[in-house]
Amino acid sequence: MNLFRLCGDLSHVVSIVLLLLKIRATRSCVGISLKTQFLYLVVFVTRYLDLFVTFISLYNSVMKVAFISTTAYILYLMFFKFKHTYDKDHDTFRIQFLIAFAAALAFVTPHRYSLLEVLWTFSLWLESVAILPQLYMLQTTGECENLTSHYIFALGLYRALYAVNWVYRYSTEPGYWQPVTWIAGILQTALYGDFFYYYVASRRRGKRLKLPT
């Protein structure tokens, strides 16, 4: 565990807390993509199946359970409690393509052919593109609430910090080698490129995030 990794994890936790705050404070999930949240739940469930077979640390297990349960709770809020506020007409990204993309790569790039390894690889590729429905929704609506933009920023920051952690570990831990994780992680961070730019620009002006249409 190094500082970059810890800050990355914390940023991931913060992003989820921000999303929950947004939904609970405004009692609405307007501007939030249900499809992205659904994909994250699939990512966490397929990746963290190893909870039942390997124990790494208490920290690791607690975080895994926290990610699965909070994302399931967010989906519950969006699907049942605040369903009437869900902006279905703007959440139109076709996630079948993302699932097909991740499934195809999961069969080509696993470290070894076992059920857990293939699912783990699938989760990495799916996570790398899972933000796309949310970014697409933001693009079509043009702007979003502050909390929503902070949420997306914290989520992007998490992967960016992980990338720094990989460079750090690669240079300090002999034999540290995770090519699929790295490539999927860099793809994921790159998808935030445009968003980061407009987010920082909007912070500087002290205004809401507004995207050019």
Partner: peptide, 10 residues
């Protein structure tokens, strides 16, 4: 089998 590090990241 190629070497790959234990999956200790989240």
């Amino acid at each position: 089998d190629s070497i790959e590090t234990e999956k200790d990241e989240l």
